[in-house]
């Protein structure tokens, strides 16, 4: 749990708390998280349902602001940023893979991947080329023109991974990416992410309670009731 002092971390969370207000009741989702992720980490985030995994990923990804504490991405304090600046940060520095509803249904696999590049202002020829390469890297280059409805769950998640990586982010945040997949597809997806992590050095933080996923990770973080209860490197 000690912060890594050799390399400056990609993610640095200090005393992060999040309290949701539901009606008149305060629901604490995170109660003081200190967490550093080093460049190249391939970490899993486990914990029972409702323990705060999604909330933590949202804080790190700049999707939401903590109630207190600070989050830094690549040396930049996220919590202080306006919502527009956080959107820009997400677009430029962070790749997301969600559990479901990852893709735009009316766009082909290729167009889905190219969409973020377009938001970044990349020209049409270059974004098509880069999207094609990214789809090849996740092993579904042949399905580039299919819309999500004509892809299996595993293939859809691969498209999402390709999209997360195509912008060359500093970190990929994946929130239970295998939750809707059978074990073969789940294995394949994690294997893919692990390979991409090794090849590109991109940091991955993946929430999951799938044992096979956790086995593949090189760092395993456990969250219970909004607190980090263990953090093992292997």
């Amino acid at each position: 749990m000690k912060p890594d002092t050799q390399v400056s971390p990609i993610v640095r969370c200090r005393g992060v708390t999040k309290v949701y207000r539901v009606g008149a009741v305060d629901v604490p989702a995170l109660s003081g998280i200190d967490l550093d992720l080093a460049p190249g980490d391939f970490a899993t985030l486990a914990g029972p349902s409702g323990s705060g995994k999604t909330t933590l990923l949202n804080m790190i990804g700049g999707l939401d602001r903590p109630t207190s504490g600070t989050v830094e991405i690549d040396g930049q304090e996220v919590t202080a940023l306006s919502s527009g600046a956080r959107a820009a940060l997400r677009l430029h520095r962070i790749g997301f893979v969600f559990q479901a509803y990852n893709l735009v249904p009316v766009l082909s696999a290729l167009e889905n991947v190219a969409l973020t590049l377009q938001l970044l202002g990349v020209g049409p020829a270059e974004r098509a080329e880069r999207a094609r390469v990214a789809l090849d890297e996740v092993g579904i280059g042949a399905l580039a023109d299919r819309r999500p409805a004509y892809l299996s769950g595993g293939q859809q998640q691969r498209v999402a991974v390709a999209r997360a990586l195509v912008t060359r982010p500093v970190i990929v945040l994946a929130d239970e990416p295998t939750a809707n997949l059978d074990s073969t597809n789940a294995d394949g997806l994690i294997g893919l992410m692990s390979d991409l992590n090794r090849a590109s050095g991109t940091t991955f933080l993946i929430s999951s309670h799938d044992a096979r996923v956790i086995d593949r990770s090189r760092r395993h973080i456990e969250v219970v009731d909004g607190k980090v209860v263990s953090d093992d490197r292997r």
């Binding site: 527009g84 959107a87 430029h92 973020t116």
Partner: peptide, 16 residues
């Protein structure tokens, strides 16, 4: 709404 949420999460602006 969820699809829009996903697009916002990716960094698309509400204006877009």
């Amino acid at each position: 709404t969820r699809e829009f949420g996903m697009l916002l999460a990716l960094g698309m602006r509400p204006m877009q």
